[in-house]
Design a protein around this nucleic acid. Structure first.
Lengths: 212, 212
DNA sequence: GCCATTATGTATCGTCCGATACAATAAAAG
DNA sequence: CTTTTATTGTATCGGACGATACATAATGGC
């Protein structure tokens, strides 16, 4: 067993509290005193657990991804490409304009540090966003290969389009857009989706597509 | 004539320099020492001219709007609604992924302070973005009234859609997206545009529409 | 020339920042 | 019980932050 005095706080809970602070104030706007107060710990505990402010931020981002995994799984498992796009955009609209108070409006990956004194922060955030885009692109590449997307469709562009829409909606959500505002935009955005050439697809885009 | 010692620096040039700093580092990441150094002046000159850091930021945003006025004028004067949408998105793609070094990538209104320790900053930025959206909405309301957009089209949603796309593309540009990447997205985004019900529009959407 | 007015350069203010030193505490290992 | 290891709370570090005091310089008004 692990020796030494046991940690006196829950890592996950502390990360959730820190996430809210970073979300509301951004990376640079989040002060150590604000973070420790929200997390209910003292500075030495924070530094012992996460190294420094950037280490805490990276841990928060990992937890953020974990929280969004459910949505991404549903998107990847959607029965067809357009349904995947719809689930993705609707999911983003739902959580970014969430009024349940579980999180501040918007998206942590967008608003916590697009521009920053420390150049690493925007890069880290970009990597996390690119990860989501990659998931979508690979899903659409499979769709195209299997004939569920027209050969004229470009999976990379489709993924980029969805991520741009998602990020843009998050910007609007952070400025006060309601979920209805965003859902209207989603409905319009899906009209851009390419139509299939042939009515009967060759085979499934994903083994789980029948699950829904 | 104005009495007293004349100002020893050009306001516009200084604002352009400050704009670059805010653009790259965000509102909070931009330090007074960094700003004064980039502007080529000392702190007292800055405070005498702009009041404080927030005053400087507001002045920078006004200059930013002035710089973008040319694009917005062209958008409003476009011959039809879809052409307006195209000009807008292509214009945003062009300047946000600009490699001429005139500005950092992205959009100042998006990346300089979505989240901030000072709550006024996100609000000010949101107002400036909302102004652009309002211009688009009013243009589309005229189009719809004049029969250049189908009655089923919702001008507010169309404007919101375009602004979301623009903001999302800016996020991607700030992460390194090329102008080609964004142009591909623009082309796809325009596929969502509503098609007119009747082939012959009743009258011009705008007096300047014949100008192109 | 002299005054009122405004801008400038130097030096510095108090505050908050991120980060630690240190002793005390709480567990496992022997 | 003693040692070892790890976390805790208190108090504080050097530095950067935004913002100014103050004397000097440069203009128009008279």
């Amino acid at each position: 067993m692990r020796t030494g005095r046991p940690r006196g706080f829950c890592i996950e809970t502390a990360l959730d509290r820190a996430m809210t602070v970073f979300w509301q104030k951004g990376y640079e706007g989040a002060s150590l005193s604000g973070l420790t107060q929200a997390m209910g710990i003292n500075p030495p505990s924070l530094y012992a657990a996460f190294g420094n402010k950037e280490g805490l931020f990276r841990a928060v981002l990992e937890r953020y991804d974990a929280r969004r995994k459910g949505l991404m799984d549903r998107v990847i498992a959607a029965p067809d490409a357009k349904k995947a796009a719809q689930l993705f955009l609707e999911g983003v609209a739902e959580f970014s304009a969430d009024t349940n108070g579980r999180n501040p409006p918007g998206c942590l990956l967008v608003q916590s540090g697009l521009s920053c004194s420390d150049r690493d922060i925007p890069e880290i955030l970009a990597q996390h966003r690119a990860e989501k885009e990659k998931m979508l692109r690979e899903r659409f590449e499979r769709d195209r290969k299997d004939g569920n997307l027209p050969k004229s469709a470009n999976p990379a562009v489709l993924a980029s389009y969805l991520v741009a829409m998602a990020n843009g909606m998050c910007v609007q959500a952070s400025a006060g857009a309601t979920i209805k505002d965003l859902m209207d935009v989603v409905k319009l955005a899906l009209h851009a989706w390419p139509v299939a050439e042939k009515p009967a697809p060759k085979k499934s885009a994903h083994p789980l597509q029948r699950a829904l």
